[in-house]
Nucleic acid binder design. Structure first.
Lengths: 202, 202
DNA sequence: GGACTGACAGATATTGAAATCTGTCAGCTG
DNA sequence: CAGCTGACAGATTTCAATATCTGTCAGTCC
């Protein structure tokens, strides 16, 4: 009856079930029930429960990637762009964590379930940082001889403000000040950074 | 019989029991059994199980603090000192995690049980970073107008290499390279950092 | 005959009764 | 009488029986 069962409809229903019951309680049977079909039908579109969850997660992360794209070159200088981009990512994650802690926890679990998904997410975002740095190097605002490595270093140095393991600290009233201090330190480093391998020399 | 039951003997026995059974299984009864006394006697020296665990944890952290003190001013420049200090902390945690994963996990649980203990540990180590930076500012090697804030920023930027939540990444073969990149970026930032509040200007 | 169902086997999760643990304290012991 | 014991109440954990879930597939229904 009704329309044909599509992968998209299953994804939407899965997201809704995850919102309602959380990652521990959401079952394939629940999803099928929400769609008014038997759970066998769901397995016609997704080979396993893990694949279904992964597809939902990827869809959610892609929305973030698209949103972050739009902040890539909003400012006048590369430093402004980098700061704005990091601030935007931080604000988004922090708001999500504060306003919808259960949903945030749900996606935290989903992301950690797969080995591919975090790689995908990280690779994408570090790539965006690399593009900002690359633009800064071209205008001689930044100095580095290995853009990819430096982008990874910027990502690593700001882990505290995007890695979910640190989410509990995002409620701290001083967190924005700590963010500013770290980003200032990193931006100052980008202006004069010469990483070759080990000994940094002035 | 034997010698009087001392707090120190109880701490040593507790540490042994934690090593043997892990934080989830170690009970006060086990500690008492290891000492050949009734568990009521243990409560004569420590008011609760939590206090006992906290005392063991503090003893363990103090050993780290003392060890790190000895790396504070080993090198020629402040940059060398900072790099060596961060490297030493990273090596110590990484080795502990790789060689004795169960013991590492045990102390990770113990530290996370208290709110005071992490504060104590963090405060101590950030204080040591502040001393290194302060020495660097005096020799004009580093530039900053707020040593404490900058020390916190250095700590935050290197979270990945000492926060236990990132321990699983310490096995990655590229981790030392990532460490070098982040430390180089941070050291470069310290040389030219002017944090006032937001806009870093060269 | 392509999409869906529902019954099934093995794996996983839930439940509640029994066992153990924490923290207290009156009393023993040297 | 200072320090330890061991029995106790309430809280927590364990364990095994029970229920539910995952993934498959032969069969049903447009």
């Amino acid at each position: 009856m009704a329309e044909a069962l599509t992968g998209e409809a299953i994804l939407a229903a899965t997201e809704e079930v995850l919102r309602r019951y959380g990652p521990a309680k959401a079952t394939v049977v629940d999803v099928a029930k929400a769609l008014g079909v038997s759970h066998g039908s769901v397995y016609r579109h997704f080979p396993t429960k893990a694949a279904l969850r992964e597809a939902v997660t990827r869809r959610w992360l892609d929305a973030i990637h698209v949103e972050m794209e739009s902040v890539l070159d909003a400012g006048a200088s590369a430093a402004d762009n980098l700061r704005a981009w990091l601030q935007h990512l931080f604000d988004r994650k922090r708001l999500s964590h504060v306003d919808e802690p259960e949903l945030f926890a749900t996606f935290k679990v989903l992301v950690s379930e797969s080995r591919i998904i975090p790689e995908y997410h990280l690779g994408h975002l570090v790539g965006q940082i690399a593009r900002i740095i690359s633009a800064g190097v071209e205008t001689r605002e930044f100095v580095t001889d290995d853009i990819q490595r430096t982008a990874q270093a910027v990502w690593d140095a700001t882990q505290m403000f995007h890695h979910p393991a640190h989410a509990q600290e995002w409620g701290n009233p001083h967190i924005q000040d700590e963010f500013d201090a770290v980003v200032s330190l990193v931006v100052a480093g980008l202006r004069y950074n010469r990483i070759p391998s080990a000994t940094g020399d002035a």
